[in-house]
């Protein structure tokens, strides 16, 4: 098995989100919902039971008027690699319903395998996993807008962002039709990347030095993918989750907000 891997250039699909460009407009969220058949219900204001694979957090710097500043952080699934695919959520799943795919670096979630124990949700520090507390219900006629590429989830299972893995599959089908096995950078892009009006999201292979994500984040793949771009950071870097979503910001306070720090200086108060 190991030997076989040599024949395949393993990918590490990742995302770089430029927080200076992100306007918090919500396009990525809706693009994601619409692409992935995410259900909705009458009241979605309780954000703790509202399924948004990609959620935009609004951060403030905690300072008084007029020193106040805000920043938006779009948070898809981080597709953590942990150490060698030991993502926080993957190893805890008792039924192998979620797994770290070494070919793409994407953490899968198989809804029909999941039996809803929610251990993975407890394990994920990013709250990137969502439980279907309710049966998904589309108002009469609206199920016409559902995409056949992603199966709608039933009540009682966990779901999460898949980096639009079905797009990878479809892109590969298309490449196969043309007799190719490798995908070009623009052939596989996530729905949020594509929709972002501000062009804040970049998606691609972090192992490929020609891809924009690599150039932006400059991941140190030998050391757990730590970004070498000084403006780049990852959420909760210190936990060792080794996420594949990088953020860029020129603002110091925003970068600091990405992780917890022992010393109190510069640390955000919990609000």
């Amino acid at each position: 098995m190991k030997e076989e891997h040599k024949h395949v250039k393993t990918k590490k699909y990742g995302m770089v989100i430029d927080l200076d460009k992100c306007t918090g407009c919500g396009s990525c969220m809706v693009a994601c919902m619409s692409e992935n058949n995410v259900p909705f219900k009458k009241d979605e204001t309780n954000k703790l039971d509202s399924i948004t694979w990609l959620r935009i957090y609004k951060l403030t710097n905690g300072k008084k008027f007029p020193e106040t500043d805000i920043c938006y952080i779009p948070r898809p699934c981080m597709q953590c690699e942990g150490e060698h695919g030991h993502a926080p959520c993957v190893s805890v799943c008792p039924a192998t319903a979620t797994d770290y795919n070494h070919e793409t670096g994407i953490v899968s979630q198989i809804y029909t395998r999941c039996f809803g124990c929610r251990y993975c949700m407890a394990a994920c520090p990013y709250h990137a996993r969502y439980f279907n507390w309710w049966d998904p219900v589309w108002p009469d006629g609206m199920e016409k807008s559902l995409s056949p590429n992603v199966s709608p989830r039933m009540r009682g299972v966990v779901e999460k962002c898949s980096f639009c893995f079905h797009r990878y599959q479809l892109a590969k089908n298309k490449a196969y039709a043309q007799g190719r096995r490798e995908l070009k950078e623009d052939e596989y892009q996530t729905a949020c990347t594509q929709a972002c009006p501000a062009g804040a999201i970049t998606f691609g292979d972090l192992n490929n030095h020609n891809h924009a994500v690599y150039k932006l984040a400059k991941p140190d793949n030998k050391h757990g993918g730590r970004p070498r771009n000084p403006n780049a950071f990852r959420l909760l870097e210190k936990l060792g989750t080794n996420p594949k979503v990088y953020y860029l910001s020129t603002r110091e306070w925003v970068r600091r907000a990405g992780d917890n720090y022992i010393k109190d200086e510069g640390k955000l108060e919990h609000h």
Binding site: G26, S27, V30, A31, P139, G141, M142, S145, A195, A198
Partner: peptide, 20 residues
């Protein structure tokens, strides 16, 4: 105008099309 980008209202257009 938009060269590939799209806002969330436009993205939700199908919910207007098929909506209640």
């Amino acid at each position: 105008v938009n060269d590939g980008g799209v806002c969330l209202l436009g993205l939700s257009g199908l919910q207007l099309l098929y909506g209640s």
